[in-house]
Amino acid sequence: MNYTLFTLSWFETILAGISVLAIYSFLYRENKFYRLFEHLFIGISTAIVTIEPIKTFFWQTTLKPLLGLDRLAFPDGTYVADYDFNYLLFLIPIFFGSLYYSILVPKYSWLAQITIGFLLGISGGMAFNATMVEVTPQIIDSFRPLYINLPEQSARENLINSLNNIFFLIVLFSTSCYFFFTFKRKPNGVVEKISTSGRWLMMGCFGAFFGTTIMARLALLIERLQFMVDHWWVAVMALF
């Protein structure tokens, strides 16, 4: 990659590199340079979060049709289509949503709770759909055959798959047992022993999480270092 001095892409790369260095300066110690860039990031992120929904949704699908701005006028002043008065219904959620702002006036702040409650209710009502769709296939998959004898597979494959299924169900059952708090467990009883083995097997699961987490975190660092080596350093060297 080659950079021509003082072009837009050169400035872009140089500033991006300075941003990365500002953040990494935190590794030495907390400092003003880091704090400044951290606040810069928060400001920019807030602006993106604010403007993007207005741009792609609120303006295009709500305000524009509501104000009749999606209808184009012909040269003689007539319109392509008549105004659809159904769009006035958008005023209902707009009004209902404006109740949020009552939170700023202590006397009427309870009105905001109506809107918040309404949205909480929606998420509650949708939870049935969400849970069923996600969990049902997993419950079905958990009923695995302990003995597999498929003609299209070799005896070795059948044996391995059977053993895998047995192990899978042992892990599932014993880990589930760990979370049974419905009845009192006897010390050294069967359930207690199974739940202890469940705890051990869960440790294996957490180990898997640790192993993959390492990869995720390192990937983040490497991607930034790659940018610094392949782009920023080249842009800096263009100065000399």
């Binding site: 991006a16 990494y24 920019i44």
Partner: peptide
């Protein structure tokens, strides 16, 4: 696009990549 490429993306990814050092 200058703001996004020179500040937003590098600041965001650098901030999260700090975790690599701590992990």
């Amino acid at each position: 696009s200058f703001i996004k490429n020179s500040l937003f993306i590098p600041l965001g990814s650098a901030m999260f990549s700090l975790l690599a050092f701590y992990v």
